[in-house]
Design a protein around this nucleic acid. Structure first.
Lengths: 153, 153
DNA sequence: CGGTTTTCGTTGGGAGCCCCAACGATAGAT
DNA sequence: ATCTATCGTTGGGGCTCCCAACGAAAACCG
């Protein structure tokens, strides 16, 4: 009993939670490096995509779609607007809202970001075969879901 | 070409990098909630485990083992020392070093943390069958690895 | 219509994790 | 002895996530 049982730290390193943190950090690093060429980061990509999907849309709606905090949304849109990828116009129908719309440059940037993002994700899963990538992504999606553990009762 | 192609945001949400971020965040939340009962966090667990593995050991070595920044290590050890889980004694052989050693209470806490961590990880993978969990963890470990893409040449 | 409640964008603060730079003190190498 | 490297520590900063508050404006409701 006084022997090394088996290294406690190695056990921790084998935990899904630990591995998820490392893999996620690696992904963020890859994405960050890829997007740096555009001077943007991952949230910019998501917001740009949401704007592209939903035409002119209010900031609060963007926040709900992407899951970003309203506070952070301000900064993200400031960046996108300053870069000319997005316009922020007061909504005449509801003067509280800003109508966020995509510019032509924004659409172009979105395409470049999508490409860069895909490349980074390929590098991220580089160690896996195509079949394994599908398996992994499918399982990962289920793990990522924030389910309520739906009790039958 | 002017039609919805397919929602750009949904594409992003399906990317492994996005899913990894969500899953990792969920894991951190679960771990954090579990460890809160001990007043500790995930890094404390890892450091405690490293100390348990490597007997009295210097802070810098702990940092190398766990991958934590020396700056953060200071705070983590302050917490563990204040809680009485660890002793920090100047190393007589090298007066620059602190010899970090595990106390009996520390060993007990480590066991409790290991248990809590395992439970949280089970909840994290709750949506997966045992076989899927093994598959997932194995694939995840390969994705998490920071390989050099070892070119043959 | 007036009054309450809600939403909107914005600002502020904070926690946690990650990375880097510098410092005094000490040890090691030449 | 001098120079170099390491140790623990402090400081700063960036990114993600969460919460609270505010004035402005809208929606609701009596």
């Amino acid at each position: 009993m006084t022997e090394p049982h088996e290294p406690a730290l190695d056990q921790i390193r084998a935990l899904p939670s630990w591995l998820l943190n490392r893999a996620s950090a690696r992904g963020r690093r890859l994405l960050s490096e890829a997007f740096a060429r555009e001077g943007l980061r991952m949230p910019h990509h998501a917001v740009l995509a949401a704007v592209a999907d939903s035409g002119p849309v209010a900031q609060a709606d963007l926040g709900r779609m992407t899951g970003f905090d309203p506070k952070d949304m301000v900064g993200i849109l400031n960046d996108l607007q300053r870069a000319g990828f997005v316009t922020r116009t007061p909504d005449p129908a509801d003067r509280r809202k800003n109508a966020i719309a995509l510019t032509a440059e924004g659409r172009g940037c979105l395409h470049r970001l999508a490409r860069l993002g895909d490349e980074a994700n390929e590098a991220l899963l580089g160690a896996l075969t195509p079949a394994e990538r599908e398996q992994f992504t499918a399982l990962l999606a289920r793990v990522a879901e924030e389910r309520e553990e739906g009790p039958v009762a």
